[in-house]
Structure formats: C-alpha cells, structure tokens
C-alpha cells in the first residue's frame, strides 16, 4: 500500500543512501572501492611487506603462510555456509579441540584407519545437534552455539580427563601425513585446504543446495514460501561446518601427533574475523567461498608479514582489529554511497 522508495527502479533500501551521491562517477568509485576494497588492501599489504622484507614474496614463504593458515581456513570454509544461511557458529573452536583429542585417543586404541572415520562420525553428530537446535527447533544460533562451545569443551575435558593427548608411537604411524606430508612438493594441508575450497566453492555457487543457502539467508520467509525446507538447509549448513571442523581437527592432530584440550580455543572468533574480512554479511545472504579464502589469506599474510619485519605474533591481533573495523566500515559507507565523505 505504501509507495516505498524500493518500488521504483534504481533504488534500494535506506532512505538516505542516494542523497549525497551527486555524481555518478563518485558513486561508481565508491562502489568499486567497496567491492574491491579488500582486494586492494590485500595488494597494498603485500607490496608494503615486500618492500620491508624481500623474503616476504619468496615461494617458500608464501607456501609457509598458506600452510599455517590451512587449519583456520578449512574451518572458515564450513562456517561460511552457516554465515550465509544467516546464522553463526561459535562452537567450531571447541569442536575442533574435541576432534583432535578424540582422533588421537582412538588412534592408539583402534588404529588410525578406524579412528579417523569414528572421529568424523562423532564430530558430525555434534554438528547435527547444532543443526537440529538452530534449524528444526529455530533457536537463536548465537546462544545455541555459545552453549555448545561450553558443552563441547566440557565434553572434551571429560573425555580426556583434562590431560593432553599424545600418540604413543610417533615414529611408527602414517597418521602424520595429513599435517606433515607433502605430495609433489606441496604440503598436504595446503592440498586439503585447496581441494575443500574448490569442492565447497562449487557446491555453494553451482548446486541447488548452494542456491538454497543464499535464499534462506537472504529471506528465510520467502524461501519457505518457495517450498524450500529451510530447517533442512540450515541443518546441512551446520553439518557442513562440522565436517570442515573434523577435517581441521584431523590436520591439527596429525601435525603434532599430540594435542591439548584447548587447541581450538578462540578460533571460532578468528574464523568469523576471516569471513567478515572476506566481506560476508553476518545478516546472511551474502559471501562466497572465494572471499572467505581471501579473508583467511589476509589474516595469514598479516601475521607472517609482521613476524618477518620483526614484530611479535600478538601485534597481529591489533592490526587485525583495525583492519576488520576499517573493512566493515568502508563496506557500510560505500553501500550508503557515502564512501568519499566517510574517508574525507
């Protein structure tokens, strides 16, 4: 009944968005910066660090960065599904600790060949529980996964009795291949990350399921009115998340053939940071696997670059903070068509 501005061509939401954009060129510059801003920042970073330390762009250094980002990256791939569907998953950190501890314990008990599928099954069960609560019972995902963060941490401690887990015979197992091995000179963690990114990127961009994830996150009610079983889509997003977490747990356990109970602590928020850096909206409906990979790599290169110029690892926290705020702020400002005034 109302003639809202959205009823007319060329205008989207937000009452004030157009008023300051007096010329198309300014607006276009703003749009361009908004869309490509994070890539531009990434390139600037790389140039800066390369000038500061010529080792930065050395192939082995790049390989090292991707390798050390791989675990976080694999987790971020799964959480990307959850975020695009309009939810959060804060439980991935403690879930990763759980999978690492479980697979290490079972390794000595039943051997790696059985331990890995058993661990995957248990982790997927946790993801299914998340998905059941958020998808089918429609509970708030922030609180549910916050509760699961705590509950899974408790579960891990109960399982391990609070002790670190180590493989008894570190020499005589092939289990280290997932974290330490190389194929054709490329570290296996990188291959896993790349392979999963390619598969999940295709799933999200090219399959009916991926389309439904965007629809559910963009407008869950309209998706339901289009016959999409929203609960099921959300459920599978959480399953996807736990699948990636199990893979990350496997890589983590395999890398050091031992693990602490808190190895994944805090990763849930770093994962979100990477996804946000990639430009996904926490409101759902937007984001891509490619963007998430970029976000993960930015985090990794910042950390590496700061180390190379001689700063401590924790400086990256401060830098990440500033970059996240700037990235999201510029994104918001550009969408309002006010980027230039925001910068000025």
């Amino acid at each position: 009944m109302t003639d809202a501005p959205g009823d007319r061509p060329g205008r989207t939401s937000g009452p004030r968005q157009e008023e300051e954009a007096t010329g198309m060129s300014k607006e276009q510059i703003g749009r361009f910066l908004a869309r490509q801003g994070i890539l531009i920042a990434f390139v600037l970073f790389i140039i800066g660090f390369t000038l500061a330390n010529n080792r930065f762009l050395a192939p082995d250094n790049i390989m090292g960065v991707i390798r050390s980002s791989a675990i976080l990256g694999v987790m971020a791939l799964g959480v990307t599904f959850v975020v695009i569907s309009g939810n959060l998953d804060l439980s991935v950190g403690s879930m990763m600790s759980f999978s690492a501890i479980v697979v290490l314990d079972l390794h000595d008990a039943i051997g790696p060949g059985l331990a890995i599928p058993a661990m995957f099954a248990m982790t997927l069960a946790l993801g299914a529980f998340n998905g059941f609560l958020v998808g089918y019972l429609k509970l708030n995902s922030l609180i549910v996964t916050l509760g699961m963060l705590s509950a899974i941490h408790g579960l891990t401690l109960t399982y391990s009795g609070g002790k670190n887990m180590d493989i008894a015979d570190k020499e005589g197992t092939w289990f280290g291949v997932f974290g330490q091995g190389t194929i054709l000179g490329i570290p296996v963690p990188i291959l896993i990350f790349a392979l999963l990114a390619a598969i999940l990127g295709t799933v999200l961009a090219k399959t009916p399921f991926g389309r439904k994830v965007y629809a559910v996150g963009g407008n869950g009610v309209a998706a339901t009115f289009s016959g999409i079983r929203r609960a099921r889509v959300v459920f599978f997003c959480y399953l996807m998340s736990s699948l990636c977490v199990a893979t990350a747990g496997l890589m983590q356990a395999s890398r050091s053939l031992g693990s602490q109970n808190t190895v994944g602590q805090g990763l849930e928020l770093e994962v979100l940071a990477a996804i946000i850096l990639g430009g996904a909206s926490l409101m759902g409906g937007s984001g891509t696997i490619f963007k998430t990979v970029i976000g993960v790599l930015i985090l990794g290169f910042i950390q590496n670059g700061l180390l190379l110029v001689g700063l401590q690892f924790y400086v990256q926290y401060v830098v990440t903070w500033i970059i996240i705020i700037l990235a999201v702020w510029l994104d918001i400002a550009a969408k309002r068509g006010r980027l230039l005034s925001a910068i000025a």
Partner: peptide, 26 residues
C-alpha cells in the same frame, strides 16, 4: 566506533577483543 561508523557492535567488539588482547601481550 559503534556510534561513528555504524558497524555492528558484534563485529566491533569481536575486533577489539583481538585488539585489546594484543595490547595485553604487547
């Protein structure tokens, strides 16, 4: 930051959670 940038408080404080922790270490 929440006031002047309009960025959601969840994201702002997620960032400063990292940033303030970095200050602690520094």
């Amino acid at each position: 930051i929440v006031w002047k940038t309009g960025v959601d408080a969840f994201i702002v404080t997620l960032g400063s959670m990292l940033g303030y922790r970095g200050l602690v270490f520094m």
